[in-house]
C-alpha cells in the first residue's frame, strides 16, 4: 500500500508539473483540492487521465463518487487498490 501511495504521489507531481513538491511533502490524509496541495478542477481532469494511464483504472461518471476518490492520497490509493482487486477477480 505504501508503495502504491508513493506511486500516486509521483504521478500527481509529474502529470501536474508541480513545482517545489517532493513525494514526501504530500501528506497521505491531506486534501488534494482546495487547501493543502491546492489542486483545482482542471488538475482533477488531468490527474484522472494520468492515473488511468498508469494504473488502468476507470473513474465513475458520477461526480460525487469521484470527489470521494480524489479527496486525498489515501482515498485514491484505496480506490485504486479496490479497482485492481475487482479487475483480478473478473
Amino acid at each position: 500500500m505504501e508503495e502504491l501511495k508513493n506511486e500516486i504521489k509521483k504521478v500527481i507531481i509529474s502529470s501536474l508539473e508541480l513545482e517545489d513538491v517532493k513525494p514526501e511533502d504530500i501528506v497521505d490524509s491531506e486534501p488534494l483540492f482546495g487547501e493543502g496541495l491546492g489542486l483545482d478542477s482542471i488538475d482533477a481532469l488531468e490527474l484522472g487521465v494520468a492515473l488511468k494511464r498508469k494504473f488502468g483504472i476507470k473513474f465513475s461518471s458520477e461526480n460525487s463518487e469521484n470527489r470521494k476518490h480524489f479527496a486525498s492520497v489515501n482515498a485514491l490509493a484505496e480506490y485504486i487498490a479496490a479497482s485492481k482487486e475487482n479487475q483480478t477477480k473478473e
Binding site: 513545482e19 517545489d20 511533502d25 487547501e35 491546492g38 483545482d40 478542477s41
Partner: peptide, 26 residues
C-alpha cells in the same frame, strides 16, 4: 522551504478566489 511559502500564499488567496485562478507557480 519554498513549498511552505507557496502554500501559505495559496491558502491566503483561498479566502478570496476559486482554486482555479490561484497562482500555480510562485
Amino acid at each position: 522551504e519554498k513549498l511552505v511559502l507557496n502554500r501559505y500564499f495559496h491558502d491566503f488567496l483561498m479566502h478570496y478566489f476559486e482554486n482555479t485562478v490561484i497562482p500555480k507557480k510562485w
